[in-house]
Design a protein around this nucleic acid. Structure first.
Lengths: 210, 210
DNA sequence: AGCATTCTGTACCGAGCGGTACGTATCCGA
DNA sequence: TCGGATACGTACCGCTCGGTACAGAATGCT
């Protein structure tokens, strides 16, 4: 039973993509349902039928954002060494928050760091999802310690926190209009700090015989 | 002519203080005029008479916040060496964004990183004021280069940007509920990164004979 | 005492909010 | 060809938004 009744007049994925951009630019509270439907090219009842409501749409938008716009994190985690994981993460983050074909910054922060009391769950949801990413990075760095890639005294949780703090700051900065090249400089400083604090082997040291 | 007509029934400064906290917790758009007047203990016409409107109140709240809650920045800039300037800034920022008698995070970010199109100027205003602080730090670090406190190859603008990115990330993290001690760890990693990237003399090196 | 001046509280404004009822259009299966 | 099912557009719901009109209350000045 592929479909019964009148078929949808719009592409759900494409509409969700537009919603991502509106939420990204204007935040959850700053994006009205009218703003959303206009950008999505649909009417309000279609939005409610297809997505359930503004809050559900937002959660789906965040999920899609994590899937598509933060895909670089998966690639970064797959790097062989902790240094390369972090270097990839920081550098790809700079690119992601300064794409010209996307709003500046990061949906996870632009979506709303603070909310009215009614919408407090939204800010909490975003904060939790950010901290989830931090936990994943900490796990990856812990693996690096277990593998001997990072020294035993390195603190994966603290290091992951530092990296995530930098990426969040980058996103805030990008939303303020700071250029990609300027953010890249900051990423390199952060990377140097990570290397110093973690005792990570640099790529040169890893590939070149000591 | 000290006062003519009926005297004010509330303390303007105290009311502004309450407004700061509401904006800080809920953001500009998330804070309704009713939320504000209830916290300030006044009625709407009093708010409009005393402060001019919601947006003017917000700008005054931000000014007061910068004066009182970011006063540590002035102290930090007065430190004798670049290393101590940055160390004080990072450490005091951690304390400021995790005060138990204040909302978590920083008004300059919680106030709103994104807004509805109508309120776009608010996000721009906050972004500009943050970048203003970054410029002041860059100036202070440039002075350190001129004084020989930082090596000639150090880039004050890039370093200031990195530090501000970290403090912004700390504020986002604090708003997510991360503890003061956890943020302090991150601040020390950032400080190490600053020292490495700038070539700053550490306090020990500065006081101890080489 | 009386008046101009200023502040206070109530009650209200038009507009926009998120969300929905309902009649119509368009599909599949029988 | 017709009925069940689904999606569509219009027009509307109650509510809250930021902001204000207005009348009464409290002061200083004369």
């Amino acid at each position: 039973m592929p479909q019964r009744g009148r078929p949808r007049g719009f592409d759900v994925d494409e509409a969700l993509e537009r919603a991502v951009e509106v939420f990204w630019r204007q935040g959850y509270e700053g994006a009205s349902v009218t703003d959303l439907t206009e950008a999505m090219g649909i009417n309000k009842p279609s939005l409610y039928a297809a997505f359930g409501g503004k809050e559900e749409l937002f959660r789906k938008a965040v999920a899609r954002y994590a899937e598509k716009d933060m895909g670089y994190a998966r690639d970064a985690f797959a790097q062989p060494t902790a240094y390369e994981v972090v270097a990839t993460l920081l550098r790809e983050n700079v690119i992601a928050v300064t794409r010209t074909d996307r709003p500046a910054g990061c949906l996870s922060i632009q979506g709303g760091t603070s909310c009215s009391t009614d919408n407090a769950p939204i800010a909490g949801f975003l904060a939790a999802s950010r901290l989830g990413g931090e936990g994943a990075l900490a796990d990856r760095l812990a693996r690096a310690v277990a593998e001997g890639d990072l020294p035993a005294h390195a603190d994966p949780v603290a290091l992951a926190r530092f990296i995530m703090i930098v990426t969040e700051g980058q996103a805030v900065h990008a939303a303020a209009g700071v250029s990609r090249e300027d953010l890249r400089q900051a990423a390199e400083i952060a990377l140097a700090g990570f290397a110093a604090a973690s005792g990570a082997r640099l790529p040169e040291q890893a590939t070149r015989p000591v």
